[in-house]
Design a protein around this nucleic acid. Structure first.
Lengths: 140, 140
DNA sequence: ATTGAATTCATACTTTCGGGTGAAGGTTTT
DNA sequence: AAAACCTTCACCCGAAAGTATGAATTCAAT
């Protein structure tokens, strides 16, 4: 905050210096006052934008879509589409049987997928898999 | 966005009108150019601050501590301290046995706690309990 | 002091999970 | 075509999780 104020003051000083310089140059050359005012207006608008954002920057953060799939990790860990899908459903608290029903495959198939997932994610339990999946942004 | 630009334009128009008015008044009264420029600078600085914040406002959000315990829900659901603690550890991917070891109690005790938690949270599995716990802000 | 809730533990039983192995059918790549 | 990979499924086994019931202990509140 103190730093921001100092920076603002510094910027102000530089601008005032520039303005004085412009004032000297432009008045000597007899340019219109409107043009001069325009430059002042533009410069201070930009300064205002900059200062305003700077003053609030520490409290703000960009908000994008709150989940962006990390496809690199999927590739790196060699997780297939089906496995990814199973991981998603697992993260929703479904049992293997429920996942099997939802995907119209057998319970054994899901077990295979989950086992492979645990290997690839280097975890031992589904709760940990969900955690890890979220950490790596594989699931929301 | 379109609205913002329109508002900015409108504000600009008003300011320009005011400036013209000031220009007329001040020059008639023979006030210094520096004073005039100062007013322009201040106004456009403020305009810049306002416009800058406005242009980014939709993308920003206040950042506080990222977890605030919802004690009301704990009371409402009649979840005891011990149960809450178990829920926390459960959310960290620990098995019942690991939780038991960490709390220096028997496995059976943890099972009792988890069972009661599932009843109170109205879920059937630990993965769902973790989900629910996060939804209700009982755990980070 | 008694009531009531919380915590602890046990036993017994069922269900779900997870590990290991193997294998058939399909697709893609080489 | 052959190799490599994905998906599917099966069977077995042990471990973990979850359900039900009952009970002893502690601790706060009435």
């Amino acid at each position: 905050m103190k730093r921001t104020i100092l920076l603002y003051g510094l910027a102000m000083a530089i601008l005032i210096f520039l303005l004085k310089y412009l004032e000297y140059r432009l008045f000597v050359r007899d340019l219109s006052v409107e043009f001069y005012v325009g430059i002042v207006a533009v410069m201070f608008t930009l300064l205002g934008v900059w200062a305003g954002l700077r003053l609030t920057r520490k409290k703000i953060v960009l908000v994008g879509p709150d989940f962006i799939l990390n496809e690199n990790e999927l590739l790196r860990l060699e997780i297939s589409k089906r496995e990814h899908e199973v991981l998603r459903l697992m993260a929703q608290g479904l049992s293997n049987q429920e996942i099997a029903d939802k995907l119209f495959v057998s319970l054994n198939t899901i077990k295979t997928h989950t086992s492979n997932l645990f290997l690839k994610l280097e975890v031992k339990r589904r709760t940990q898999a969900v955690q890890r999946g979220k950490e790596l942004r594989l699931i929301p």
